[in-house]
């Protein structure tokens, strides 16, 4: 029987969401529209319309050696053109953000190729060829893994993911890269991801209600869905813990498990 890929156990809302985000056959819902030029402005790596800087000649001109791996792997557009590797970093609040950094890593690696990603407690960086990065950044600002109030685009000084929200319901940001537009009820970016003021205000839309966010999140919380309430998820965690404790990096060596 052919192996059927599995993604995540469990029946509770966060478990089902995790499974859906990880499964590349599931399309993520697009919730908002942000212009590509505005995404480029927020990323801050180049000006909109500016040529991409390159770090090596296009592969077509590069006289690549005869290598089976090179023949096997189709390069990304950015790699073909010799783009620089640039980054985008998302910060996710612990207050029921649609996704959390660890699941971001799983999701990125499950859905995309040509990325390097790193997980920290509150943030998740993606490093990638510049033109491909811009496409992915736009996708992740527009889709359901992003909430304007609880997800931040922060290149540095990301502190705030575990802080209480402010009075407008926004995640704390010491550099105030985005602000609350009370008239429109929207979150507006006024600085790029490394705090350089933008020459225009970029709206990323209205935050979702806390009630809806609890249905969209992948975060288990005692005041939401407790992980211990999902028996399958708990058993999966315990099993990994047991195998790691007893067999280290050779879980297959355990007999009867």
């Amino acid at each position: 029987m052919a192996y059927k890929r599995q993604f995540y156990p469990g029946t509770t809302v966060p478990a089902v969401n995790r499974r859906r985000y990880l499964d590349p056959s599931q399309n993520l819902k697009k919730l908002r529209e942000v212009a590509m030029d505005d995404v480029v402005r927020i990323l801050g790596h180049r000006q909109p319309g500016e040529e991409y800087k390159s770090i090596h000649p296009p592969l077509e001109e590069a006289n690549e050696p005869d290598c089976p791996i090179r023949q096997l792997v189709t390069p990304l557009e950015g790699a073909k053109k010799g783009d620089r590797v640039r980054y985008v970093q998302f910060t996710d609040s612990v207050y029921f953000a649609p996704i959390s950094p660890y699941q971001r890593a799983w999701m990125y690696l499950s859905r995309y190729r040509g990325i390097d990603t790193g997980t920290l407690s509150g943030r998740q960086i993606i490093e990638m060829r510049e033109r491909d990065l811009e496409v992915i950044a736009k996708e992740f600002i527009e889709n359901e893994t992003f909430d304007p109030a609880l997800t931040g685009i922060r290149g540095a000084t990301v502190h705030g993911h575990a802080c209480r929200l402010d009075e407008n319901g926004l995640m704390f940001d010491a550099w105030q890269r985005y602000e609350w537009d009370a008239k429109k009820g929207e979150v507006v970016y006024v600085k790029d991801q490394v705090a350089l003021p933008l020459d225009k205000r970029i709206s990323v839309g209205k935050p979702d209600s806390m009630e809806n966010l609890k249905k969209r999140t992948t975060i288990f919380r005692a005041d939401g869905v407790d992980m211990r309430d999902d028996k399958e998820v708990t058993m999966y965690g315990l099993r990994i813990h047991k195998l790691r404790t007893l067999a280290g990096f050779q879980p297959f060596a355990m007999k009867g498990e």
């Binding site: 290149g155 540095a156 000084t157 010491a174 550099w175 105030q176 490394v194 705090a195 350089l196």
Partner: peptide, 22 residues
């Protein structure tokens, strides 16, 4: 509370003012 720095202290724009309204 959570500190609001007067200036950006890291990253490529270190030293520019934050101008946080709060």
């Amino acid at each position: 509370g959570e500190t609001l720095p007067a200036k950006v202290k890291s990253g490529p724009h270190t030293g520019i003012p934050v101008n946080h309204p709060e």
